[in-house]
Computed example of a mutant assay.
Amino acid sequence: MDLALLRTFVTVHRAGSLTRAAALLGLSQPAVTSQIQALERQLGRPLFLRNARGVTATTIGDELAHKVAPHLDALTEITETGLAADSVTRTVHLAGPPEFTAERALPALTPLIAQGLSIRVSFGPAEELLTGLAAGHHDLTVTAVRPRGGLLTSTPLCDEEHVLVAAPRWAARLGGPAVLQARGVRALDPVPLVEVHESLPLITRYWSAVFDAKPSASAAVIASDLRAVLGCVAAGAGLAVLPRYLCADALGSGEVVALLDPPVPPLRTYFLAVRTGTLGLPHIARAHEWLLRTAVGW
């Protein structure tokens, strides 16, 4: 049986779409369709059912994928290991949210540069980066959105604690955590909101988890980078919800103050996502393992 046909079949099975598989393989969609049809003729059984959103594997298709995919991945690993021995450097394309990637993920990977690894970094929103990962533009993607389907595989990386912060003068005006706890969320109404997006994603999540309420006002300041949000809050622009790792130094120096200390602080989980099968490539596997190992201390 032709290995090229099996490789195309496994890619379609993982992608759930002829179009996405064609992009990953660098082929046209008609070429992918033709290869799948050729394999189905050889087997005498249909491997996929076509639908409006892509393709769904038949029982025979699932069985074949489970049998051949590990062997194809192993062959890729053998091939790439051989190539790696002849290459001075290998490049990992890392993607993720700008703050977390810049402050945590990228510094964690820098020791691998001395081992011959090159790193290229892209920033953007989760859905856009996951689409890029699926299309082969990235090798590793840090995301707070857990991908679904067989094309991408994700592993929990770490939990991020969120803190409600403001400048000291706003904290003094509000009367401290005890007063705020007693008065509830309405005590925060006089304080302007600072966020990364008009939809108030961090504040809405915090309000829901801690106050069982929704924000009643729009943001006074929108800055698409959380580091800019922190700078605005430290300057007295208002309150914000920030990851603790990002504002820990400002909290320690007194530039900003935690307005509340809830018994169960809101958390957000980050995942490390890859295309299924690519952990057979040594340079990607090394970066993936290094990030997971380092994240234990986060």
Rank of each mutant, 00 (worst) to 15 (best):
residue 1 M to I: 09
residue 3 L to K: 14
residue 5 L to S: 10
residue 16 G to D: 03
residue 17 S to A: 11
residue 18 L to E: 10
residue 19 T to R: 15
residue 24 L to F: 06
residue 31 A to S: 11
residue 34 S to F: 03
residue 38 A to V: 08
residue 41 R to Y: 03
residue 43 L to Y: 06
residue 44 G to D: 03
residue 44 G to R: 11
residue 49 L to Q: 15
residue 51 N to Q: 14
residue 51 N to C: 13
residue 55 V to A: 07
residue 56 T to V: 10
residue 57 A to F: 00
residue 65 A to R: 08
residue 66 H to L: 14
residue 66 H to G: 15
residue 67 K to R: 15
residue 67 K to P: 15
residue 68 V to N: 05
residue 77 E to Y: 04
residue 78 I to V: 15
residue 91 T to V: 07
residue 100 F to H: 12
residue 102 A to W: 01
residue 105 A to G: 12
residue 107 P to Q: 04
residue 111 P to G: 07
residue 112 L to H: 11
residue 115 Q to M: 11
residue 120 R to F: 02
residue 120 R to W: 02
residue 127 E to D: 14
residue 134 A to G: 06
residue 135 A to I: 07
residue 144 A to V: 06
residue 157 L to S: 00
residue 160 E to A: 11
residue 161 E to W: 05
residue 163 V to Q: 05
residue 163 V to D: 01
residue 165 V to S: 01
residue 167 A to K: 01
residue 168 P to R: 04
residue 171 A to V: 00
residue 171 A to M: 02
residue 174 L to M: 02
residue 176 G to M: 02
residue 177 P to M: 00
residue 177 P to E: 00
residue 179 V to K: 09
residue 179 V to F: 04
residue 180 L to F: 00
residue 180 L to E: 01
residue 185 V to A: 08
residue 186 R to A: 14
residue 187 A to Q: 05
residue 188 L to M: 05
residue 188 L to A: 08
residue 194 V to C: 12
residue 195 E to L: 03
residue 205 R to T: 09
residue 206 Y to A: 02
residue 206 Y to I: 00
residue 207 W to I: 01
residue 208 S to Q: 14
residue 212 D to R: 14
residue 215 P to Q: 01
residue 219 A to D: 04
residue 228 A to Y: 04
residue 232 C to K: 12
residue 233 V to A: 05
residue 235 A to Y: 00
residue 240 A to I: 05
residue 242 L to V: 08
residue 246 L to D: 07
residue 253 S to G: 12
residue 255 E to K: 08
residue 255 E to G: 10
residue 260 L to A: 06
residue 262 P to L: 01
residue 262 P to Q: 01
residue 269 T to Y: 08
residue 269 T to S: 15
residue 270 Y to V: 07
residue 271 F to Q: 08
residue 276 T to W: 01
residue 281 L to I: 11
residue 286 R to C: 13
residue 293 R to N: 09
residue 294 T to G: 12
